[in-house]
């Protein structure tokens, strides 16, 4: 330990740089605009009551409001009633900065909807990838058929093509089909995972043939063998692939940015955050960072809970 002090020193410096933006993101999501501007308040901010200016402005008393409030403030002038009403509005509109930031994050934009879209898209992508890739991987690993080498060669060739790189022709095809601005556009290009086929094939190669022969003896069809015999053996590999797939598509920004324009109902979390940034003025740093925190948190928490599996899943591609 003592002779390792210099190693810890270097590593801790690294930790500071790595953590800094996370620290700032979470810290800003707690602070009031004033504290952010002046750089005060430590990590949590002072959490003094603050007044939401926009909320007050919205409740700016009109002539009718003043007339309606006449009986509550008997015998007072209009101006005095107005001041009293504004004071009331200010009292109602004041809250702790942390509450302000997070409530704004969810009310200024339909953040829950974005999160739901993220879940729908990542889940559909993963499920379809498995339904398509698993049978193919089984056939390539365990069945003898003419053309097998060619098909596998094609898989190896397709591994060379990153889907992001061919985004433009895919976008043209989807436009021609009238599919842009739909869930289909977000999911379709990712339905085929050549990497998934390759990975599961490698895994299925290690499954003993006896297991499959026994299933055939029992009269199982090949498709039933895939789902009832091979799938259960492949759960660990599939878990790793699930993490790989979900992380990639939850975080993906490039593809949704291309095929979704304008229709907020289809925004994935990164798109929602981007739009938030687009219309935000300076005083909205807090809510924006709250949004960012909300979007980043699910994966980070899952990662902290199941670190080993995550690292396995993400680095999967390196373990051929």
């Amino acid at each position: 330990m003592t002779r390792d002090w210099w190693k810890h020193l270097i590593l801790i410096l690294g930790v500071i740089v790595v953590i800094a933006p996370f620290y700032m993101m979470v810290s800003y999501s707690f602070k009031s605009p004033g504290e952010i501007d002046r750089g005060e308040g430590g990590f949590f901010g002072r959490q003094e009551m603050m007044v939401d200016e926009r909320c007050v402005k919205l409740r700016d008393p009109s002539r009718d409001d003043i007339a309606a409030a006449m009986d509550r403030f008997p015998g007072q002038t209009d101006a005095a009633i107005r001041t009293a009403l504004v004071a009331e509005a200010e009292a109602d509109c004041s809250m702790r900065p942390v509450v302000f930031n997070y409530s704004k994050a969810f009310t200024e934009a339909p953040l829950l909807r974005y999160l739901l879209n993220g879940v729908i898209v990542t889940a559909s992508i993963f499920l379809i990838q498995v339904v398509v890739a698993l049978p193919a991987a089984y056939a390539l690993a365990k069945l003898k058929f003419w053309g097998r080498e060619t098909v596998f060669g094609l898989v190896l060739f397709c591994l060379l093509i990153p889907v992001h790189a061919i985004a433009l022709p895919l976008y043209i095809m989807l436009t021609k089909l009238g599919l842009t601005n739909s869930y289909a556009a977000l999911v379709v290009p990712w339905t085929i995972s050549v990497f998934g086929i390759f990975l599961m094939r490698q895994f299925f190669m290690t499954v003993p043939d006896d297991l499959i022969d026994a299933a055939r003896m029992d009269g199982m069809s090949e498709l039933a063998i895939v789902w009832r015999v091979m799938l259960p053996t492949a759960v660990p590999a599939l878990m790793a692939f699930a993490i790989f797939s979900v992380v990639a598509h939850w975080n993906d920004y490039f593809w949704p940015r291309i095929v979704i324009s304008g229709n907020r109902d289809l925004f994935t979390p990164p798109l929602g955050l981007r739009e938030f940034k687009g219309d935000a003025d300076g005083s909205f740093f807090g809510p924006m960072m709250a949004t960012a925190t909300v979007i980043v948190t699910p994966l980070i928490v899952a990662f902290l809970i199941a670190q080993k599996r995550f690292i396995e899943g993400i680095t999967l591609s390196g373990m051929k």
Partner: peptide, 11 residues
């Protein structure tokens, strides 16, 4: 490993 997991756009 945290930055690898985090949504790059947010970061």
């Amino acid at each position: 490993f945290l930055p690898v997991m985090a949504t790059l756009l947010a970061m």
